[in-house]
Design a protein around this nucleic acid. Structure first.
Lengths: 144, 144
DNA sequence: CACGTTTTGTTGCATGATGCAACATAGGAG
DNA sequence: CTCCTATGTTGCATCATGCAACAAAACGTG
């Protein structure tokens, strides 16, 4: 084979990503944290995507409209998300979603908690190693 | 702050791992592949852990015994997993699980499919970059 | 402006993964 | 042999999800 070492590394990458995703679902089962995995993901997306509508979330997450509808309703019920009054908004279809102040606070709180445990996990890594890992992950997530 | 760059890298790592896990659940929803995510995880664990019993799986995955019982029953029903006759086995409690030939074939098939898509995703990476990524992931998954 | 079409959101029903608790069973300890 | 503990199974509930039918809102055409 032309690149035996590369093939082995790809296999290891595959196994480690499998393992990583297993640990992530594991963790999200055990720790309720302030937010569930899905809730956290939705809040992150809404926060990061100004002008988002429910259907945009569905597209981004490969979820059915109905699922997003219910999840968003739950978050709205918790007071974390609200529909934007589109008085000044663009005249598009659908309802624009945004985080409430409470939603932003919860998201920040959850992010801080997870970053804290990440900080511990990376305690033995040098600055350069952390930087390289972050860069490689970003590259992996955003090909092309 | 003492390490502003490191903090930024940790934040990016956090975000990228979030994004990665989102994409993984996304993918596992869309692609049925030969095996579902849970099935695949269980087969991988059973294959990698000789002498495993159902309760070991529950512990490793932070799952309830009942859940594992049902999943294993399903895999057994599909002929992918079987209880080992413990004639030669150690006289411990519980039933030892192992993959059948068919189970090993399915697992290999699923692994090959996912490694193929991984190969495409890493197409633009140099051998060294792939190696560094695999190493970093392994280190991240196995701290201490 | 009115009507029909398309987009977006909601709700009813079904499925699958999961947890808890009660129960069943098997292996070891005395 | 009897009891205890570890392991596994089953009944019931919950939650995330999908599909399909429906509802509502925005748009376009005449």
């Amino acid at each position: 084979m032309a690149h035996p070492a590369r093939e082995a590394d790809i296999r290891q990458t595959y196994e480690q990503i499998q393992e990583l995703s297993r640990r992530i679902t594991d963790r999200s089962r055990r720790l309720s944290e302030p937010l569930s995995f899905v809730e956290h993901s939705l809040l992150r997306f809404i926060a990061a995507t100004p002008g988002t509508r429910a259907i945009d979330i569905a597209a981004a997450f490969s979820l059915n409209r109905s699922t997003v509808s219910r999840q968003v309703a739950a978050l709205t019920g918790m007071g974390l998300v609200a529909e934007l009054e589109h008085d000044a908004g663009a005249p598009g279809r659908g309802r624009i979603l945004a985080l409430t102040g409470e939603g932003e606070a919860k998201l920040a709180q959850a992010a801080a908690a997870q970053q804290e445990s990440l900080r511990e996990r990376l305690a033995g890594w040098s600055d350069d190693e952390v930087h390289a890992f972050a860069t490689a992950l970003a590259r992996y997530n955003t090909p092309e």
